[in-house]
Design a protein around this nucleic acid. Sequence first.
DNA 1: GATAGTTTCATACAACTGTTTGATTTGCAA
DNA 2: TTGCAAATCAAACAGTTGTATGAAACTATC
Lengths: 223, 223
Amino acid sequence: MASDHTRSAILAAAERLYADRGFGDVTLRDIVAAANVNLAAVNYHFGSKDELIAELFVTRSIATNRERLRELKAAEEQGGGRAPIEAILRALVGPTLRGCLGPETQRSTAARFMIRASIESVPPIRRIKNREIDHLRKFAGAMRRSLPDRSEVDIYWGLNFALAMAHHTIRESERLTKLSEGKCDLDDVEDVVARVVSVATMALTAGKGEAKAPARALARDAR
Amino acid sequence: MASDHTRSAILAAAERLYADRGFGDVTLRDIVAAANVNLAAVNYHFGSKDELIAELFVTRSIATNRERLRELKAAEEQGGGRAPIEAILRALVGPTLRGCLGPETQRSTAARFMIRASIESVPPIRRIKNREIDHLRKFAGAMRRSLPDRSEVDIYWGLNFALAMAHHTIRESERLTKLSEGKCDLDDVEDVVARVVSVATMALTAGKGEAKAPARALARDAR
DNA sequence: GATAGTTTCATACAACTGTTTGATTTGCAA
DNA sequence: TTGCAAATCAAACAGTTGTATGAAACTATC
Protein backbone atom coordinates (compact mmCIF):
# COMPACT_ATOMS: atom_id res chain seq x y z
CA MET A 1 0.00 0.00 0.00
CA ALA A 2 3.09 2.14 0.37
CA SER A 3 2.01 5.77 0.75
CA ASP A 4 -1.61 6.81 0.70
CA HIS A 5 -0.26 10.31 0.68
CA THR A 6 -1.39 11.19 -2.83
CA ARG A 7 -4.74 9.57 -2.34
CA SER A 8 -5.63 11.48 0.78
CA ALA A 9 -4.18 14.72 -0.56
CA ILE A 10 -6.63 14.44 -3.44
CA LEU A 11 -9.53 13.69 -1.12
CA ALA A 12 -8.76 16.65 1.09
CA ALA A 13 -8.28 19.08 -1.76
CA ALA A 14 -11.39 17.88 -3.55
CA GLU A 15 -13.53 18.14 -0.45
CA ARG A 16 -12.40 21.66 0.28
CA LEU A 17 -12.82 22.87 -3.28
CA TYR A 18 -16.23 21.29 -3.70
CA ALA A 19 -17.35 22.69 -0.36
CA ASP A 20 -16.20 26.17 -1.28
CA ARG A 21 -17.14 26.46 -4.91
CA GLY A 22 -19.62 23.72 -5.62
CA PHE A 23 -19.40 20.78 -8.00
CA GLY A 24 -20.34 22.92 -10.94
CA ASP A 25 -17.13 24.77 -11.46
CA VAL A 26 -14.40 22.69 -9.92
CA THR A 27 -12.39 20.76 -12.46
CA LEU A 28 -10.06 17.84 -11.98
CA ARG A 29 -7.24 20.17 -12.86
CA ASP A 30 -8.23 22.48 -10.04
CA ILE A 31 -8.15 19.57 -7.64
CA VAL A 32 -4.79 18.15 -8.66
CA ALA A 33 -3.31 21.64 -8.62
CA ALA A 34 -4.52 22.20 -5.06
CA ALA A 35 -3.30 18.78 -4.03
CA ASN A 36 0.03 19.16 -5.81
CA VAL A 37 -0.27 15.89 -7.65
CA ASN A 38 -0.34 14.86 -11.26
CA LEU A 39 -3.52 15.02 -13.26
CA ALA A 40 -3.54 11.29 -13.94
CA ALA A 41 -3.41 10.52 -10.24
CA VAL A 42 -7.16 10.94 -9.83
CA ASN A 43 -8.00 8.31 -12.37
CA TYR A 44 -5.22 6.09 -11.12
CA HIS A 45 -6.39 6.14 -7.52
CA PHE A 46 -10.14 6.49 -7.88
CA GLY A 47 -10.95 5.28 -11.37
CA SER A 48 -12.94 8.35 -12.36
CA LYS A 49 -14.07 11.74 -11.20
CA ASP A 50 -17.50 10.39 -10.29
CA GLU A 51 -16.02 7.64 -8.15
CA LEU A 52 -13.95 10.24 -6.32
CA ILE A 53 -17.07 12.24 -5.56
CA ALA A 54 -18.95 9.13 -4.54
CA GLU A 55 -16.22 8.03 -2.14
CA LEU A 56 -16.14 11.49 -0.63
CA PHE A 57 -19.89 11.51 -0.17
CA VAL A 58 -20.20 8.01 1.20
CA THR A 59 -17.46 8.58 3.75
CA ARG A 60 -18.93 11.81 4.99
CA SER A 61 -22.46 10.55 4.87
CA ILE A 62 -21.60 7.65 7.13
CA ALA A 63 -19.80 9.91 9.56
CA THR A 64 -22.61 12.46 9.78
CA ASN A 65 -25.27 9.83 10.20
CA ARG A 66 -23.25 8.09 12.90
CA GLU A 67 -22.92 11.35 14.79
CA ARG A 68 -26.62 12.03 14.57
CA LEU A 69 -27.55 8.54 15.62
CA ARG A 70 -25.12 8.67 18.52
CA GLU A 71 -26.90 11.75 19.88
CA LEU A 72 -30.28 10.22 19.22
CA LYS A 73 -29.42 6.99 20.97
CA ALA A 74 -28.03 8.83 23.96
CA ALA A 75 -31.20 10.85 24.24
CA GLU A 76 -33.47 7.85 23.97
CA GLU A 77 -31.50 5.83 26.52
CA GLN A 78 -31.56 8.71 28.95
CA GLY A 79 -35.34 8.85 28.61
CA GLY A 80 -35.80 5.09 28.84
CA GLY A 81 -36.60 4.52 25.17
CA ARG A 82 -38.61 7.68 24.77
CA ALA A 83 -36.63 10.87 24.25
CA PRO A 84 -38.08 14.36 24.55
CA ILE A 85 -38.87 15.69 21.11
CA GLU A 86 -36.45 18.58 21.55
CA ALA A 87 -33.57 16.18 22.07
CA ILE A 88 -34.49 14.21 18.97
CA LEU A 89 -34.64 17.33 16.85
CA ARG A 90 -31.40 18.52 18.32
CA ALA A 91 -29.74 15.27 17.33
CA LEU A 92 -31.13 15.69 13.83
CA VAL A 93 -30.09 19.24 13.06
CA GLY A 94 -27.37 19.91 15.62
CA PRO A 95 -24.40 18.15 14.03
CA THR A 96 -24.95 19.72 10.62
CA LEU A 97 -25.57 23.20 11.95
CA ARG A 98 -22.56 23.06 14.21
CA GLY A 99 -20.38 21.94 11.34
CA CYS A 100 -21.54 24.53 8.85
CA LEU A 101 -22.02 27.66 10.92
CA GLY A 102 -20.02 29.36 13.60
CA PRO A 103 -16.74 31.24 13.42
CA GLU A 104 -14.74 30.52 10.30
CA THR A 105 -12.08 28.60 12.16
CA GLN A 106 -14.31 25.91 13.60
CA ARG A 107 -16.38 25.18 10.54
CA SER A 108 -15.75 21.72 9.24
CA THR A 109 -15.04 21.19 5.59
CA ALA A 110 -16.87 17.92 5.89
CA ALA A 111 -20.15 19.51 6.93
CA ARG A 112 -19.93 22.19 4.28
CA PHE A 113 -19.24 19.53 1.68
CA MET A 114 -22.35 17.67 2.76
CA ILE A 115 -24.45 20.78 2.39
CA ARG A 116 -23.13 21.27 -1.11
CA ALA A 117 -24.02 17.70 -1.85
CA SER A 118 -27.50 18.16 -0.48
CA ILE A 119 -27.98 21.16 -2.70
CA GLU A 120 -26.39 20.51 -6.05
CA SER A 121 -27.21 16.86 -6.37
CA VAL A 122 -24.72 15.75 -9.00
CA PRO A 123 -25.42 12.33 -10.59
CA PRO A 124 -23.00 10.13 -8.63
CA ILE A 125 -24.42 11.46 -5.40
CA ARG A 126 -28.04 11.28 -6.40
CA ARG A 127 -27.63 7.56 -6.88
CA ILE A 128 -26.37 7.06 -3.34
CA LYS A 129 -28.70 9.51 -1.69
CA ASN A 130 -31.75 7.32 -1.71
CA ARG A 131 -30.33 5.39 1.20
CA GLU A 132 -30.66 8.47 3.35
CA ILE A 133 -34.37 7.85 3.56
CA ASP A 134 -33.73 4.83 5.76
CA HIS A 135 -31.70 7.03 8.03
CA LEU A 136 -34.46 9.62 8.32
CA ARG A 137 -36.93 6.88 9.05
CA LYS A 138 -35.08 6.12 12.25
CA PHE A 139 -35.68 9.68 13.37
CA ALA A 140 -39.31 9.49 12.34
CA GLY A 141 -39.58 6.37 14.50
CA ALA A 142 -38.06 8.09 17.50
CA MET A 143 -40.36 11.04 17.00
CA ARG A 144 -43.39 8.78 16.87
CA ARG A 145 -42.34 7.16 20.12
CA SER A 146 -41.85 10.58 21.66
CA LEU A 147 -45.21 11.89 20.48
CA PRO A 148 -47.48 8.83 20.33
CA ASP A 149 -50.63 10.94 20.09
CA ARG A 150 -49.46 12.77 17.04
CA SER A 151 -50.56 11.66 13.58
CA GLU A 152 -47.95 10.16 11.36
CA VAL A 153 -48.48 12.87 8.76
CA ASP A 154 -47.74 15.58 11.28
CA ILE A 155 -44.57 13.78 12.31
CA TYR A 156 -43.29 13.72 8.75
CA TRP A 157 -44.15 17.36 8.23
CA GLY A 158 -42.36 18.29 11.42
CA LEU A 159 -39.31 16.34 10.33
CA ASN A 160 -39.43 18.02 6.95
CA PHE A 161 -39.71 21.49 8.44
CA ALA A 162 -36.86 20.89 10.88
CA LEU A 163 -34.52 19.88 8.09
CA ALA A 164 -35.83 22.75 6.00
CA MET A 165 -34.96 25.37 8.57
CA ALA A 166 -31.54 23.94 9.27
CA HIS A 167 -30.48 23.52 5.67
CA HIS A 168 -31.94 26.76 4.41
CA THR A 169 -30.34 28.72 7.21
CA ILE A 170 -26.98 27.27 6.31
CA ARG A 171 -27.40 27.82 2.61
CA GLU A 172 -28.65 31.36 2.91
CA SER A 173 -26.71 32.38 5.98
CA GLU A 174 -24.99 35.14 4.09
CA ARG A 175 -28.25 36.59 2.84
CA LEU A 176 -29.85 36.47 6.28
CA THR A 177 -26.90 38.34 7.72
CA LYS A 178 -27.17 40.97 5.02
CA LEU A 179 -30.96 41.22 5.24
CA SER A 180 -30.88 41.71 8.97
CA GLU A 181 -27.87 43.99 8.73
CA GLY A 182 -25.94 41.76 11.06
CA LYS A 183 -28.66 41.65 13.69
CA CYS A 184 -29.08 37.90 13.24
CA ASP A 185 -25.89 36.40 14.59
CA LEU A 186 -25.13 33.28 12.58
CA ASP A 187 -21.97 32.68 14.55
CA ASP A 188 -23.90 31.90 17.70
CA VAL A 189 -24.53 28.35 16.61
CA GLU A 190 -26.23 27.18 19.77
CA ASP A 191 -28.73 29.99 19.45
CA VAL A 192 -29.47 28.92 15.88
CA VAL A 193 -29.88 25.31 16.98
CA ALA A 194 -32.18 26.41 19.79
CA ARG A 195 -34.31 28.47 17.41
CA VAL A 196 -34.69 25.69 14.88
CA VAL A 197 -35.45 23.11 17.55
CA SER A 198 -37.90 25.43 19.25
CA VAL A 199 -39.90 26.18 16.12
CA ALA A 200 -39.88 22.57 14.99
CA THR A 201 -41.06 21.52 18.43
CA MET A 202 -43.93 23.98 18.25
CA ALA A 203 -44.84 22.66 14.84
CA LEU A 204 -44.96 19.17 16.26
CA THR A 205 -46.79 19.84 19.50
CA ALA A 206 -49.15 22.72 18.83
CA GLY A 207 -52.87 22.40 18.21
CA LYS A 208 -53.36 18.66 18.27
CA GLY A 209 -53.94 17.13 14.92
CA GLU A 210 -55.02 20.24 13.05
CA ALA A 211 -52.17 22.62 12.45
CA LYS A 212 -53.93 23.60 9.30
CA ALA A 213 -57.33 25.16 9.80
CA PRO A 214 -56.60 28.77 10.74
CA ALA A 215 -57.23 31.70 8.47
CA ARG A 216 -57.50 29.72 5.32
CA ALA A 217 -60.11 32.08 3.91
CA LEU A 218 -57.78 35.06 3.88
CA ALA A 219 -56.29 36.54 0.75
CA ARG A 220 -58.37 34.46 -1.56
CA ASP A 221 -58.81 37.25 -4.07
CA ALA A 222 -56.36 35.84 -6.58
CA ARG A 223 -57.03 36.62 -10.19
CA MET B 1 -39.04 43.72 -35.26
CA ALA B 2 -40.76 41.33 -37.61
CA SER B 3 -41.25 38.01 -35.84
CA ASP B 4 -40.25 37.49 -32.24
CA HIS B 5 -41.13 33.89 -32.83
CA THR B 6 -37.61 32.53 -32.62
CA ARG B 7 -36.80 34.67 -29.63
CA SER B 8 -39.74 33.57 -27.56
CA ALA B 9 -39.39 29.96 -28.65
CA ILE B 10 -35.90 30.00 -27.23
CA LEU B 11 -37.06 31.61 -24.00
CA ALA B 12 -39.82 29.07 -23.54
CA ALA B 13 -37.64 26.08 -24.31
CA ALA B 14 -34.82 27.31 -22.12
CA GLU B 15 -37.12 27.97 -19.19
CA ARG B 16 -38.67 24.55 -19.39
CA LEU B 17 -35.37 22.73 -19.74
CA TYR B 18 -33.68 24.65 -16.96
CA ALA B 19 -36.67 24.13 -14.70
CA ASP B 20 -36.69 20.40 -15.38
CA ARG B 21 -33.02 19.52 -15.45
CA GLY B 22 -31.18 22.42 -13.86
CA PHE B 23 -28.58 24.74 -15.29
CA GLY B 24 -25.84 22.22 -14.80
CA ASP B 25 -26.62 19.87 -17.62
CA VAL B 26 -28.62 21.80 -20.14
CA THR B 27 -26.58 22.89 -23.11
CA LEU B 28 -27.31 25.51 -25.73
CA ARG B 29 -27.70 22.67 -28.19
CA ASP B 30 -30.39 21.12 -26.02
CA ILE B 31 -32.24 24.40 -25.97
CA VAL B 32 -32.12 25.10 -29.69
CA ALA B 33 -33.15 21.53 -30.39
CA ALA B 34 -36.18 21.85 -28.14
CA ALA B 35 -37.04 25.20 -29.67
CA ASN B 36 -36.47 24.00 -33.20
CA VAL B 37 -34.17 26.84 -34.07
CA ASN B 38 -30.62 27.13 -35.22
CA LEU B 39 -27.73 27.03 -32.80
CA ALA B 40 -26.54 30.51 -33.71
CA ALA B 41 -29.95 31.99 -32.92
CA VAL B 42 -29.21 32.20 -29.21
CA ASN B 43 -26.16 34.36 -29.66
CA TYR B 44 -27.89 36.38 -32.35
CA HIS B 45 -30.92 37.21 -30.23
CA PHE B 46 -29.45 37.32 -26.74
CA GLY B 47 -25.75 37.92 -27.18
CA SER B 48 -24.65 35.02 -25.01
CA LYS B 49 -25.89 32.14 -22.95
CA ASP B 50 -25.47 34.10 -19.75
CA GLU B 51 -27.53 36.97 -21.06
CA LEU B 52 -30.28 34.55 -21.99
CA ILE B 53 -30.32 33.18 -18.46
CA ALA B 54 -30.24 36.68 -17.00
CA GLU B 55 -33.18 37.83 -19.10
CA LEU B 56 -35.14 34.76 -18.09
CA PHE B 57 -34.42 35.33 -14.44
CA VAL B 58 -35.10 39.05 -14.44
CA THR B 59 -38.44 38.61 -16.19
CA ARG B 60 -39.62 35.92 -13.83
CA SER B 61 -38.24 37.61 -10.80
CA ILE B 62 -40.22 40.74 -11.53
CA ALA B 63 -43.39 38.77 -12.12
CA THR B 64 -43.10 36.73 -8.93
CA ASN B 65 -42.32 39.74 -6.82
CA ARG B 66 -45.22 41.65 -8.30
CA GLU B 67 -47.58 38.82 -7.46
CA ARG B 68 -46.33 38.61 -3.90
CA LEU B 69 -46.53 42.35 -3.40
CA ARG B 70 -50.02 42.43 -4.84
CA GLU B 71 -51.20 39.96 -2.22
CA LEU B 72 -49.30 41.80 0.47
CA LYS B 73 -50.75 45.15 -0.45
CA ALA B 74 -54.27 43.75 -0.58
CA ALA B 75 -53.85 42.29 2.87
CA GLU B 76 -52.47 45.48 4.34
CA GLU B 77 -55.18 47.63 2.82
CA GLN B 78 -57.85 45.31 4.12
CA GLY B 79 -56.38 45.65 7.59
CA GLY B 80 -55.93 49.39 7.36
CA GLY B 81 -52.17 49.39 6.97
CA ARG B 82 -51.58 46.52 9.36
CA ALA B 83 -52.16 43.04 7.98
CA PRO B 84 -52.49 39.93 10.12
CA ILE B 85 -49.20 38.07 10.14
CA GLU B 86 -50.80 35.01 8.56
CA ALA B 87 -51.82 37.04 5.54
CA ILE B 88 -48.34 38.47 5.14
CA LEU B 89 -46.75 35.06 5.29
CA ARG B 90 -49.31 33.72 2.88
CA ALA B 91 -48.43 36.46 0.43
CA LEU B 92 -44.77 35.56 0.84
CA VAL B 93 -44.88 31.81 0.32
CA GLY B 94 -48.22 31.29 -1.40
CA PRO B 95 -47.38 32.24 -4.97
CA THR B 96 -44.23 30.15 -5.10
CA LEU B 97 -45.79 27.11 -3.48
CA ARG B 98 -48.83 27.25 -5.71
CA GLY B 99 -46.65 27.49 -8.77
CA CYS B 100 -44.32 24.66 -7.89
CA LEU B 101 -46.56 22.09 -6.24
CA GLY B 102 -49.96 20.70 -7.06
CA PRO B 103 -51.07 18.37 -9.83
CA GLU B 104 -48.64 18.18 -12.72
CA THR B 105 -50.94 20.04 -15.06
CA GLN B 106 -51.20 23.23 -13.07
CA ARG B 107 -47.59 23.63 -12.10
CA SER B 108 -46.05 26.67 -13.71
CA THR B 109 -42.77 26.38 -15.50
CA ALA B 110 -42.00 29.89 -14.33
CA ALA B 111 -42.20 29.01 -10.65
CA ARG B 112 -40.17 25.86 -11.10
CA PHE B 113 -37.55 27.82 -12.97
CA MET B 114 -37.33 30.29 -10.13
CA ILE B 115 -36.79 27.51 -7.65
CA ARG B 116 -33.97 26.15 -9.77
CA ALA B 117 -32.48 29.60 -9.85
CA SER B 118 -32.76 29.91 -6.10
CA ILE B 119 -30.98 26.61 -5.69
CA GLU B 120 -28.23 26.35 -8.24
CA SER B 121 -27.12 29.94 -8.26
CA VAL B 122 -25.23 30.15 -11.53
CA PRO B 123 -23.02 33.24 -12.00
CA PRO B 124 -25.29 35.41 -14.17
CA ILE B 125 -28.09 34.96 -11.66
CA ARG B 126 -25.99 35.46 -8.58
CA ARG B 127 -25.14 38.92 -9.81
CA ILE B 128 -28.76 39.94 -10.10
CA LYS B 129 -29.96 38.22 -7.00
CA ASN B 130 -28.72 40.77 -4.54
CA ARG B 131 -31.62 43.01 -5.44
CA GLU B 132 -34.00 40.46 -3.94
CA ILE B 133 -32.98 41.63 -0.53
CA ASP B 134 -34.79 44.90 -1.10
CA HIS B 135 -37.89 42.92 -1.93
CA LEU B 136 -37.68 40.86 1.23
CA ARG B 137 -37.19 44.00 3.24
CA LYS B 138 -40.69 45.09 2.24
CA PHE B 139 -42.04 41.95 3.81
CA ALA B 140 -39.92 42.45 6.89
CA GLY B 141 -41.43 45.92 7.14
CA ALA B 142 -44.97 44.63 6.89
CA MET B 143 -44.22 42.00 9.49
CA ARG B 144 -42.82 44.60 11.84
CA ARG B 145 -45.97 46.66 11.45
CA SER B 146 -48.05 43.57 12.10
CA LEU B 147 -46.10 42.56 15.19
CA PRO B 148 -44.81 45.80 16.68
CA ASP B 149 -43.92 44.17 19.99
CA ARG B 150 -41.67 41.64 18.37
CA SER B 151 -37.94 42.20 18.22
CA GLU B 152 -36.42 42.83 14.83
CA VAL B 153 -34.22 39.79 15.14
CA ASP B 154 -37.21 37.54 15.70
CA ILE B 155 -38.90 39.03 12.65
CA TYR B 156 -35.94 38.21 10.44
CA TRP B 157 -35.70 34.71 11.80
CA GLY B 158 -39.39 34.17 11.20
CA LEU B 159 -39.05 35.41 7.64
CA ASN B 160 -36.06 33.15 7.14
CA PHE B 161 -37.86 30.10 8.49
CA ALA B 162 -40.95 30.74 6.39
CA LEU B 163 -38.91 30.85 3.20
CA ALA B 164 -36.95 27.84 4.41
CA MET B 165 -40.02 25.67 4.82
CA ALA B 166 -41.52 26.72 1.51
CA HIS B 167 -38.41 26.27 -0.57
CA HIS B 168 -37.23 23.08 1.07
CA THR B 169 -40.64 21.50 0.73
CA ILE B 170 -40.63 22.26 -2.95
CA ARG B 171 -37.09 21.07 -3.50
CA GLU B 172 -37.50 17.85 -1.54
CA SER B 173 -41.12 17.20 -2.30
CA GLU B 174 -40.27 13.92 -3.91
CA ARG B 175 -38.29 12.74 -0.93
CA LEU B 176 -41.01 13.74 1.51
CA THR B 177 -43.54 11.78 -0.48
CA LYS B 178 -41.30 8.74 -0.47
CA LEU B 179 -40.37 9.08 3.19
CA SER B 180 -43.98 9.33 4.25
CA GLU B 181 -45.01 6.63 1.81
CA GLY B 182 -47.49 8.99 0.21
CA LYS B 183 -49.10 9.99 3.48
CA CYS B 184 -48.01 13.60 3.01
CA ASP B 185 -50.07 14.89 0.10
CA LEU B 186 -47.96 17.40 -1.77
CA ASP B 187 -50.71 17.91 -4.31
CA ASP B 188 -52.97 19.56 -1.75
CA VAL B 189 -51.24 22.88 -2.15
CA GLU B 190 -53.52 24.86 0.11
CA ASP B 191 -52.83 22.42 2.91
CA VAL B 192 -49.11 22.87 2.40
CA VAL B 193 -49.47 26.65 2.39
CA ALA B 194 -51.56 26.48 5.55
CA ARG B 195 -48.98 24.31 7.28
CA VAL B 196 -46.08 26.55 6.40
CA VAL B 197 -47.98 29.68 7.37
CA SER B 198 -49.16 28.11 10.58
CA VAL B 199 -45.70 27.07 11.73
CA ALA B 200 -44.13 30.35 10.71
CA THR B 201 -46.84 32.21 12.59
CA MET B 202 -46.13 30.19 15.70
CA ALA B 203 -42.46 30.93 15.34
CA LEU B 204 -43.24 34.62 15.17
CA THR B 205 -45.83 34.87 17.92
CA ALA B 206 -44.87 32.29 20.53
CA GLY B 207 -43.12 33.06 23.77
CA LYS B 208 -42.48 36.77 23.53
CA GLY B 209 -38.95 37.72 22.81
CA GLU B 210 -37.28 34.51 23.84
CA ALA B 211 -38.07 31.67 21.51
CA LYS B 212 -34.70 30.33 22.40
CA ALA B 213 -34.31 29.48 26.05
CA PRO B 214 -36.00 26.07 26.35
CA ALA B 215 -34.09 22.90 26.91
CA ARG B 216 -30.76 24.24 25.88
CA ALA B 217 -28.99 22.11 28.46
CA LEU B 218 -30.11 18.86 26.86
CA ALA B 219 -27.81 16.62 24.90
CA ARG B 220 -24.74 18.52 25.82
CA ASP B 221 -22.61 15.40 25.99
CA ALA B 222 -20.85 16.01 22.71
CA ARG B 223 -17.19 15.12 22.63
C1' DG C 1 -39.06 43.65 -59.11
C1' DA C 2 -34.55 45.32 -57.51
C1' DT C 3 -32.46 46.46 -53.11
C1' DA C 4 -31.16 46.95 -48.32
C1' DG C 5 -31.66 45.14 -43.85
C1' DT C 6 -32.85 41.49 -40.97
C1' DT C 7 -32.90 36.81 -39.80
C1' DT C 8 -31.53 31.96 -40.45
C1' DC C 9 -28.35 28.42 -41.42
C1' DA C 10 -24.38 25.04 -41.80
C1' DT C 11 -20.08 24.96 -40.34
C1' DA C 12 -15.87 25.98 -38.15
C1' DC C 13 -13.30 27.46 -34.07
C1' DA C 14 -10.99 27.71 -29.77
C1' DA C 15 -11.21 26.46 -25.15
C1' DC C 16 -12.03 23.29 -21.86
C1' DT C 17 -13.55 18.79 -20.00
C1' DG C 18 -12.46 13.82 -18.11
C1' DT C 19 -9.73 10.08 -19.51
C1' DT C 20 -5.87 7.25 -21.51
C1' DT C 21 -1.28 6.18 -22.83
C1' DG C 22 3.34 4.78 -22.44
C1' DA C 23 7.63 6.08 -20.68
C1' DT C 24 9.98 7.03 -16.34
C1' DT C 25 10.80 7.03 -11.59
C1' DT C 26 10.29 5.17 -7.04
C1' DG C 27 10.37 1.81 -3.19
C1' DC C 28 11.25 -2.54 -1.55
C1' DA C 29 12.20 -7.60 -1.50
C1' DA C 30 15.28 -11.29 -2.88
C1' DT D 1 22.88 -4.99 -6.68
C1' DT D 2 19.22 -6.77 -9.23
C1' DG D 3 14.42 -7.24 -10.43
C1' DC D 4 9.70 -5.97 -10.37
C1' DA D 5 5.54 -4.04 -9.13
C1' DA D 6 3.54 0.31 -7.71
C1' DA D 7 3.32 5.03 -8.45
C1' DT D 8 4.17 9.34 -10.98
C1' DC D 9 4.59 12.04 -14.88
C1' DA D 10 4.14 14.76 -19.44
C1' DA D 11 1.68 14.44 -23.23
C1' DA D 12 -1.98 13.43 -26.11
C1' DC D 13 -6.87 12.06 -26.92
C1' DA D 14 -11.74 12.34 -27.87
C1' DG D 15 -15.70 14.63 -26.62
C1' DT D 16 -18.33 18.65 -25.43
C1' DT D 17 -18.98 23.36 -24.61
C1' DG D 18 -20.15 28.42 -25.94
C1' DT D 19 -19.14 31.43 -29.63
C1' DA D 20 -17.99 33.37 -34.32
C1' DT D 21 -18.20 33.44 -39.36
C1' DG D 22 -19.84 34.16 -43.85
C1' DA D 23 -23.05 32.63 -47.11
C1' DA D 24 -28.00 31.91 -47.97
C1' DA D 25 -32.86 32.86 -47.21
C1' DC D 26 -36.14 35.84 -46.08
C1' DT D 27 -38.99 40.52 -45.66
C1' DA D 28 -40.40 44.81 -46.54
C1' DT D 29 -39.64 49.36 -48.94
C1' DC D 30 -39.05 52.00 -52.84
